[in-house]
């Protein structure tokens, strides 16, 4: 169950962030606040500014306007004290092909932890955390896609960061590895880390993120818990029924019901989308029964995060 910490201080606070690439506005006065101890989901279509925002927060990119604070202090390229408290798990597997699993984790951990003995312990813990103990002497090329992703995570978390950025860590990963990675992220949160998580997989975000921000065209379109986001859109309920053949005029009568947004029938399956209302299902069943429709299975579902995403960001293709 996602944790939320309404009273927790902000670990990340971004205000009015603007980033331009010549005429293209990648971030348009973006505001963002991530609370301590939460998993914060950052959603958006391709090119919406998610990665640009993270790069600006990490000071990997310069920006034109706005302020960024980490742990309550202004972030700057030379704030190595703040950077030392942050971990990054990039989208691509970013490791040295020439080093073994252990050497890779050690190499990145060494950027943060000087003490060799302490580092050895942290490296062991990180390797155990992602379950790569049996592969410690393997080179990345010998690892499967899922194991390489786990190595990528180990390299980002070995130094025990207080704030971790996960940039689509489950891309091209099988369901078992994905479940393992998501469990690991929740464990990090349970151990006190704050996580900023970007993904295209809505169910993942809904599963692990306490609060979610949907951004599009460099702006924050909506922000809140999954339930809060679902309440922001007009869609309140989706009703599906096995109806076989529909008598003439039935579809029109269904569309005429109050709160019904759309009604379609294809291959004997009736699909209704409705605004939030207490009587949508009974009203629809009343119309169908009166028309003499012989009903099979009938079910009703609340909107998903995917519906929220599509309604807020539109359905046109991006890239």
């Amino acid at each position: 169950m996602p944790h939320t910490h309404a009273a927790s201080p902000d670990v990340v606070r971004v205000t009015g962030l603007v980033k331009r690439y010549r005429e293209l506005v990648a971030l348009d006065h973006l505001d963002l606040a991530v609370r301590q101890g939460e998993i914060f989901g950052l959603l958006g279509p391709n090119g919406s500014g998610k990665t640009t925002a993270i790069n600006c927060i990490l000071q990997l990119l310069s920006y034109d306007r706005g302020t960024i604070e980490l742990f309550g202090e202004p972030m700057a390229p030379n704030r190595y004290d703040l950077k030392a408290r942050v971990g990054v798990v990039p989208q691509q597997v970013a490791v040295f092909d020439e080093l073994t699993v252990r050497e890779n984790v050690d190499a990145f951990c060494a950027l943060y932890v000087r003490d060799r003995r302490r580092r050895r312990q942290l490296v062991d813990e990180a390797i155990d955390f992602v379950g790569l103990g049996d592969y410690a002497r393997f080179r990345p090329a010998k690892l499967s896609g899922g194991l390489a992703r786990r190595l990528n995570i180990a390299c980002g978390i070995a130094h025990r960061p207080e704030l971790i950025f996960f940039d689509e860590p489950t891309v091209a990963v099988d369901p078992q590895s994905r479940a393992n990675i998501l469990d690991g992220i929740c464990r990090l949160r349970d151990e006190g880390a704050t996580v900023v998580y970007t993904s295209h997989y809505m169910e993942e975000v809904e599963q692990i993120c306490g609060r979610i921000m949907i951004c599009d065209r460099g702006r924050a379109v909506a922000q809140g818990t999954a339930d809060e986001l679902k309440r922001m859109i007009s869609l309140g309920e989706k009703i599906t029924a096995e109806v076989g053949e529909l008598p003439e005029g039935t579809l029109e009568r269904l569309r005429g019901l109050s709160h019904v947004l759309s009604a379609d029938c294809a291959d004997g399956m009736l699909s209704l989308t409705c605004e939030a209302s207490a009587h949508n299902l009974t009203d629809a069943l009343g119309v169908l029964t009166a028309a003499g429709v012989r009903l099979g299975r009938v079910w009703s579902e609340p909107p998903t995060l995917n519906d929220v995403f599509l309604e807020l960001c539109g359905r046109e293709l991006r890239d």
């Binding site: 004290d81 950077k83 970013a94 980002g156």
Partner: peptide, 18 residues
């Protein structure tokens, strides 16, 4: 060149070493 691979550079640049 190994250190200049884009994702590796991003990762090391995010660290606390100048």
């Amino acid at each position: 060149a190994a250190f200049q691979r884009p994702e590796l550079r991003r990762r090391t640049a995010a660290g606390p070493v100048s």
